[in-house]
Design a protein around this nucleic acid. Structure first.
Length: 151
DNA sequence: GCCAACGTTGGC
DNA sequence: GCCAACGTTGGC
């Protein structure tokens, strides 16, 4: 099993939306590296849910992969802001997965705390200039985040 | 709102 | 293939 972290702007799609929807498709990833990570996701993989552009920035909950990668339909939708005119129906460029809400943490593990924790210094999240919206997390890092969340 | 750090685009 | 210009992300 693998572990991941996905970022979402809190005012666009938050853990509360996720809780309400229970299952959501993770659309709109338009970065090749992030896409490649999406395609590696397997059913049952654990996904940390991270709020960016938020009053409280950090990991707010846990989700799980329930459907493995399939073409992101928004790339073919001219009305979508994720529309990609270069992508071909028979050879899609962009993919998405379905993830299921598991839990909202009792407390947020903030970016500040993550930066201060020497066990987490190798996390992609805190490495220089990293803007990936989907990234892998090591098992020990995942366990440490869960511990910090008091779960 | 600012801006650093990228990634992408397109002319050459 | 290079690189300037532009767009986006995301912390602050």
């Amino acid at each position: 099993m693998k572990y991941w972290l996905v970022k979402s702007e809190a005012d666009v799609y938050s853990i509360y939306d996720m809780e309400k929807d229970e299952i959501t498709f993770w659309d709109g990833v338009r970065n090749y590296q992030a896409r490649n990570f999406l395609r590696e996701m397997k059913i049952g993989d654990k996904v940390l849910f991270y709020h960016s552009n938020s009053d409280v920035i950090g990991v707010v909950g846990l989700c799980e992969v329930v459907k493995e990668s399939y073409p992101d339909f928004t790339q073919f939708d001219k009305k979508s802001k994720y529309y990609d005119p270069k992508s071909k129906l028979d050879n899609p460029t962009w993919f998405m997965v379905d993830i299921k809400f598991v839990k909202k943490f009792k407390r947020t593990v903030t970016l500040e705390e993550i930066k201060k924790n020497s066990k987490l210094k190798n996390m992609k999240l805190v490495q220089k200039g990293n803007r990936l919206s989907v990234m892998p997390v090591m098992k020990d890092e995942f366990d440490e985040i869960i511990k910090m969340a008091g779960e």
